[in-house]
Design a protein around this nucleic acid. Structure first.
Lengths: 142, 142
DNA sequence: TTAGATATTGAAACTGGTTTTCAATATCTT
DNA sequence: AAGATATTGAAAACCAGTTTCAATATCTAA
């Protein structure tokens, strides 16, 4: 089922309304490069849809995150970033502290270990964040 | 070497000055429960030292983090928290999203695996964050 | 020990991302 | 098509954090 439909269904379940702005923002989000901030998306949309406000973009991104279509990330620069959730599951991030490059990684063994650690503490994980900060191959050389 | 001395040395190396406020804040920080925010520490200090300002507390916590005495944490509630660095090395956190309980954990195998993942991507880790969000044993029951 | 140079302090103003407000507008239900 | 309800955009509010600035404290060198 495509994500436009998933979103409409989510809105309906919540007693919210499907609007033109929400659809436009959803589509722009899905087409955007990953890890875009509200600002990024707002500026991008502005070209074709100058009447859509920043607040609406941000509210819609929050809704997308709630509905599971988007994942909200915080990489420590004080600005939320959103990326489309993937069918192929969870991944984590390496963030270059020099150039800002974001590399995604997936490591099932780590996931398994953290599950075990949680069990030891009788802790029920609902989500997690695992981020490596440092220098990407390009920036490490210098 | 005790941490008051470590801090003085750090300040001197940086051409900064050892002041009464900085020492008072350092001591209060070391005696505080872990993971306190600037606000927490400011309010606590206020009782005995009502003339110390919020800005000074925050500036000093930043200096403590720079000097390696404190570790700055961000658990997604939009407020930085600081904890005394431990001699026994690094640890990560589980955060209860209901009651706020913070459990520390340490898992060398995860550290090793993340090192390997970074190598694959020619990424040089300078630090990382690994946080599990969910329900602690007490909150999971309900 | 003291004078001069420099850093620190506290209060208040400012920042920047985010969130809320509110009157006008759009959507949905019947 | 009308009434009820949610959404919109602009602007204001919010909030942790940071900066400003004049007064004060610390440090250095004589």
């Amino acid at each position: 089922m495509d994500r436009v439909r998933i979103f409409s269904d989510y809105l309906e379940r919540k007693g919210l309304k499907t609007t033109n702005q929400r659809n436009v923002i959803l589509k722009a989000f899905l087409n955007s490069r990953s890890h875009c901030s509200t600002e990024d998306l707002y500026l991008k949309l502005r070209k074709k849809h100058p009447r859509i406000g920043y607040a609406t973009v941000h509210r819609t991104l929050k809704l997308l995150a709630e509905s599971g279509i988007a994942i909200e990330q915080h990489f420590g620069d004080g600005q939320a970033r959103f990326e489309p959730a993937r069918a192929d599951g969870h991944h984590d991030h390496m963030v270059c502290i020099k150039c800002g490059l974001i590399i995604e990684f997936e490591e099932p063994q780590i996931e398994e270990l953290q599950k075990q650690v949680a069990e030891v503490h009788h802790f029920k994980i609902s989500n997690h964040r695992h981020e490596l900060y440092g220098f990407c191959f390009r920036c490490a050389d210098k």
